[in-house]
């Protein structure tokens, strides 16, 4: 395996895409899973990539500081402690900001997205049990005056194991 220069910025296309070195790209692409469970994992990665442990740590720190990665570590299976659902609302444009603020204010909501569709507000509600979930959804409908479409998960077909950023 050839050694990788720390600063080798290839010409990138796409204005929004950050310029990343080959080492940065390989760390991002090849280490979304399979991080070594050994005493010195960064040294092992360095060996696999033909570089030094110090540089791997420096680059990972930089990727984290710049927000390109949120962390290096375990990704846990969502805990089955409660019940959750994906909910959607069709909100008039002039009320979107107000309604979105109400929805986001619930501690039971951990994801809330505006999407371009007649159903323009999409959020995940997690509660300790079905009764609590119903209570939260009803409370939301009462406070917003808008109906909620409830789309609970019936089956999951794929466990997210990361995906290639560069092919």
């Amino acid at each position: 395996m050839t050694a990788i220069a720390a600063r080798n910025y290839p010409a990138m296309t796409g204005a929004l895409e950050p310029e990343l070195s080959n080492l940065e790209k390989r760390l991002l692409n090849e280490y979304q899973k399979g991080f070594p469970l050994t005493r010195t994992p960064y040294a092992e990665i360095a060996q696999q990539l033909g570089t030094s442990e110090a540089l791997v740590l420096e680059v990972l720190n930089k990727l984290k500081d710049q927000g390109y990665i949120s962390r290096v570590g375990p990704v846990f299976k969502p805990r089955k402690v409660g019940v959750s659902t994906l909910a959607a609302m069709s909100v008039p444009d002039d009320r979107l900001h107000q309604i979105a603020s109400i929805i986001s204010s619930y501690p039971e909501v951990n994801h809330n997205y505006e999407r371009e569709h007649q159903f323009n507000l999409w959020f995940v509600v997690t509660a300790r049990d079905e009764a609590h979930l119903r209570e939260v959804l009803q409370d939301m409908e009462m406070r917003t005056g808008l109906p909620i479409m409830d789309l609970p998960l019936e089956q999951q077909f794929h466990i997210d194991l990361g995906f290639p950023l560069w092919c």
Binding site: Q32, L37, L63, Y68, I69, S70, P74, V75, I159
Partner: peptide, 24 residues
Amino acid sequence: MQAMQESGIIRRIGAVPNHYVLGF
């Protein structure tokens, strides 16, 4: 951690990309 990975509590261990910042 190895045991939690085998039992599925840990799905994977690695870098967790922020796709939005990366241009996705």
